[in-house]
């Protein structure tokens, strides 16, 4: 048994029971429906801001982008403005592709030796596809949830729902994003267990968010399709939260509280974990700087004078030999 993921799995199961029993047996609706969500949101906001400020406080002393394409040099050599951006627009484009499409992750190519001397290239796409599926479906799910926090619901959320529920299967319709999210999280989990190198470098804290998000999606789907809960009541609660008039409507069902408890835990956990990569990707000096250091001087705020070996000291030591060898000197 793998201790690393067992620990996280047990933790998530424990959290599940905590919320379920807390609501169903101990009647702690107020705690799980109001107090904890507010507290978690507060922790999330303050935590994330803190973290980002912490990073921003450390300066960027050197401009060290990884150059992944041809530099801009001579006018007749075609520069790669995306992978070796010389201008700010180039950097923006590079970051855009990194953030939205995980371009670096896409870079995995492999070559296979075919029959004879031919080489074929193929892309190793699975991690990239899995990551894209995971993040995009997660984003879709979050945006869809804005329905619960707005009144009236903006029309574009309806549009998104239409698109997302395109494959109408049963009533209520299944949202593609939910299923994809579940599948993608499961894939990411599997690859952490199955691929030996990835398993070897994984820590408990790499499994925890996966289980947690799986739990969120799972309880979500459970509520919608199986343990049907009182949607109107749920919206009352969420609207209460955003309008700062929190209420606890009766009879929403324990699963709902588990769902929002999981979300709260994720929010509170976020700033202290690797999930902060969401902010970090924007601050990574190997990606977010233009590759024009030779054209535009970069300033290091803490640049300090250092001890050097000056020419004078050098000539002092070697003057005679230099003169003898016919090398020009400053002082004869």
């Amino acid at each position: 048994m793998n201790v690393k993921y067992m620990f996280s799995l047990v933790a998530v199961i424990f959290l599940f029971l905590l919320a379920y029993v807390g609501v169903e047996a101990a009647g702690l609706q107020v705690l799980f429906g109001i107090v904890i969500p507010y507290a978690a949101l507060l922790v999330f906001i303050i935590g994330v801001i803190n973290r980002v400020i912490g990073w921003a406080r450390s300066p960027v002393p050197f401009r060290i982008p990884s150059t992944c394409g041809q530099q801009r040099s001579l006018p007749w050599i075609k520069a790669s403005e995306l992978d070796n951006p010389f201008t700010t627009q180039g950097v923006v484009a590079r970051m855009f592709l990194e953030v939205l499409f995980f371009r670096s992750l896409f870079r995995n190519t492999t070559s296979k030796l075919g029959e004879g001397p031919k080489i074929y290239f193929s892309l190793e796409l699975w991690l990239w596809l899995g990551a894209l599926a995971f993040h995009w479906s997660f984003l879709t799910v979050i945006v869809r949830h804005l329905r619960l926090f707005t009144e009236p619901v903006p029309f574009w959320i309806g549009l998104l729902e239409k698109a997302d529920g395109f494959f109408q299967v049963g009533v209520p319709g299944i949202f593609l994003s939910g299923v994809v999210l579940l599948a993608a999280v499961f894939y990411l989990f599997l690859r952490r267990v199955i691929i030996p190198q990835v398993n070897y470098v994984s820590l408990s804290q790499d499994f925890f968010p996966l289980f947690l998000i799986f739990g969120i999606a799972f309880t979500g789907i459970l509520m919608r399709h199986f343990a049907k809960i009182d949607v109107i009541g749920a919206k009352q609660l969420t609207m209460g939260l955003v309008t700062f008039h929190p209420t606890i409507p009766q009879g929403i069902g324990g699963i709902f509280y588990v769902h929002i408890f999981f979300v709260s835990v994720l929010l509170a956990y976020f700033p202290f974990s690797k999930l902060m990569h969401m902010g970090g990707i924007f601050m990574s000096p190997t990606r977010n700087l233009p590759c024009n250091t030779r054209a535009v001087r970069h300033i290091n705020p803490w640049n300090y004078p250092v001890e050097t070996h000056t020419y004078e000291e050098y000539e002092e030591e070697f003057r005679e030999k230099m003169i003898e060898a016919g090398l020009p000197v400053e002082k004869e």
Partner: peptide, 23 residues
């Protein structure tokens, strides 16, 4: 060095151990 180099600080914090670099 954490205080002087944003690179170092950010790199210490955000690795998700996805393994893309491993091999």
């Amino acid at each position: 060095r954490l205080d002087r180099f944003r690179s170092f600080k950010v790199f210490m914090d955000i690795c998700v151990r996805c393994g893309a670099c491993a091999d």
